[in-house]
Design a binder for these strands. Structure first.
Lengths: 157, 157
DNA sequence: GCGAGGTAGTTGCGCGCGCAACTATTCACG
DNA sequence: CGTGAATAGTTGCGCGCGCAACTACCTCGC
């Protein structure tokens, strides 16, 4: 795959630059998600995944979304989404309803209570993301990150 | 906390630039770790966390490390490390030994088999990290990422 | 129409982790 | 010394997730 004379051959240890770029992301991700999760839990009794479901529902037409679409958005499998929605139904923030055209399908739909908690949770989340992450970067750095993610995600797949 | 006239007030939705920087990291992290985990599992029957423990042990003097140091390094709690090491002991790659000076303490120490599997797993991991992540970024982008992580991690705590 | 294959969602199972409580040891201070 | 606080590690418990198997439904070809 890589040339056998490649100076950055597969087996070579990571250079300091590579290490900083790679392990830095791991550390930042771990720390930021942990803080955001704790804040969301303390303030609203939600996990970040649950919040993201509510968010997606809130932005969708009629506040309802097919389960599979939810899974794609939240970076979970279908089974994960099933149980995530289960919990949100138990909490009263979401209800299931059948898809008219498709007897297999099911929508998750935001309830009134869900919309309320979403409004509050959105503030918490945005504040957290800015405090823990975006606020520590200037515009150019944010731009550079966005470009980097596109390259990593785009080049194949 | 933030000025009440701040144009990027807490409640405002994320700008496209902010969104690209933030959600991009989430997507990249999810995808890369998933691929690396699968590769490590298929090739050596290890999780990435297990690999990282072996790696840290391999770099340490006498190939042994205190449990708490392990926890700090692997971004896990102490209880997580206890059971992670349990599994590595079951696999025969690590053994526990008591700390001489401190009756409470315990070292995890790499076995001969552990050192072997580490050598192979290291190649797999490095190749994966380069294929999925570093190889898709040029030197400047890696540098920029490293700087960004320092700023995010450094500014408080 | 009807049977084969694909798709949407759910369920059984096991894994890996964090939290909090617990044990054992060490340290600080009178 | 002796006692209380701190520290190292382990354990009970529950949660959230993925995988694979399963059900129910749709679709396409004949």
């Amino acid at each position: 795959m890589t040339s056998e004379a490649d100076p950055t051959a597969s087996g070579d240890p990571l250079s300091p630059r590579e290490l900083a770029a790679w392990r830095g992301m791991l550390r930042v991700h771990a720390r930021v998600t942990q803080v955001l999760d704790a804040e969301m839990r303390d303030a609203h009794g939600l996990t970040v995944s649950q919040y993201e479901v509510l968010l997606f529902l809130g932005d969708a037409p009629d506040h309802r979304v097919r389960m599979a679409d939810l899974a794609a958005r939240v970076l979970l499998t279908r089974s994960g989404v099933t149980r995530l929605v289960d919990r949100l139904v138990d909490l009263g923030f979401v209800e299931r309803c059948a898809a008219e055209g498709d007897g297999r399908g099911a929508y998750a739909q935001l309830t009134k209570g869900g919309a309320e908690v979403l409004r509050a949770a959105r503030r918490t989340h945005l504040r957290g993301v800015r405090e823990q992450f975006l606020g520590r970067l200037d515009d150019d750095e944010q731009e550079a990150l966005g470009d980097a993610w596109l390259r990593v995600l785009g080049e194949r797949g």
